[in-house]
Design a protein around this nucleic acid. Structure first.
Lengths: 128, 128
DNA sequence: CCTTATCTAAGAACTATTCTTAGTTTAACC
DNA sequence: GGTTAAACTAAGAATAGTTCTTAGATAAGG
């Protein structure tokens, strides 16, 4: 189905080399181009979509309507700092039972969920 | 600060008259115009933003990047049907302690959160 | 009333994302 | 290892959703 392409591997490698970060397509486009790896923005978008289809990466829609991409598609939650607006991955242990609890309460089959916490991140907290 | 405007009250009333629904700006624009209440799309967008600032309505960003508006800004959760894609308001009782649990686990101040459940709604379940 | 800030419509502009096209690269198969 | 076909790329046009600009209309306070 999909063939290996130089550009797609650049994109994926770029993401893995920046652990913990969340990237817009534009971020990756700029980052690769700065490294001399010229790639067009449409190619970045197309390949991010392919990487998602292949379950190699995940994505998150911010309240601003901008999409950011995540190095993993393993289910996890997010913390968004209300001060610096950075996005962090978090693993809320209690969260694992959330879907079963929702099923019991709503009496409907629940397949997945998305949880975003808004608060102050450790870095911003230190700066006060 | 804000003056009362005919158009803004049309928009707000339109939303209240369709309880349980979630509207895009385009939905409201089309709905009002069908009723003979002509209003421009930019006015709908501007007033939805004002209604949000006034805390009269809420909003939700879908994974598609489209924004929908909610009759209430009272904190609550959402269920999105993976079959018909309708958006429902849900009130998960367990959810009230979620922010305190997150604070304990992350050791950071949490101000709010957004929880979206994905599953099959009652209507779609019936149709099988 | 009169003033003035806020409001509207209409359409231009903007931003993020996707599509189109023509030519290139990858890999499957002989 | 060469051929072929499918998947790929860059570049820019196109689309969709939302916001801005402008000139004129409308509320609300004095």
């Amino acid at each position: 189905m999909y063939k290996i392409s130089k550009q797609r591997e650049w994109i994926y490698t770029y993401m893995l080399e920046h652990p913990g970060q969340h990237f817009s397509a534009e971020d990756i486009f700029a980052g690769l181009n700065e490294m001399g790896k010229t790639v067009s923005l449409a190619t970045v978008y197309r390949n991010l979509k392919i990487l998602q289809n292949e379950h190699r990466i995940g994505s998150l829609m911010l309240t601003s309507g901008k999409q950011v991409f995540d190095q993993t598609c393993r289910p996890h939650d997010h913390l968004i700092c209300t001060h610096c607006h950075r996005v962090y991955d978090v693993d809320m242990t209690y969260d694992r039972s959330l879907e079963r609890k929702a099923e019991n309460q709503l009496q409907l089959p629940i397949e997945s969920h998305s949880l975003i916490l808004y608060g102050i991140c450790a870095d911003c907290l230190k700066e006060r």
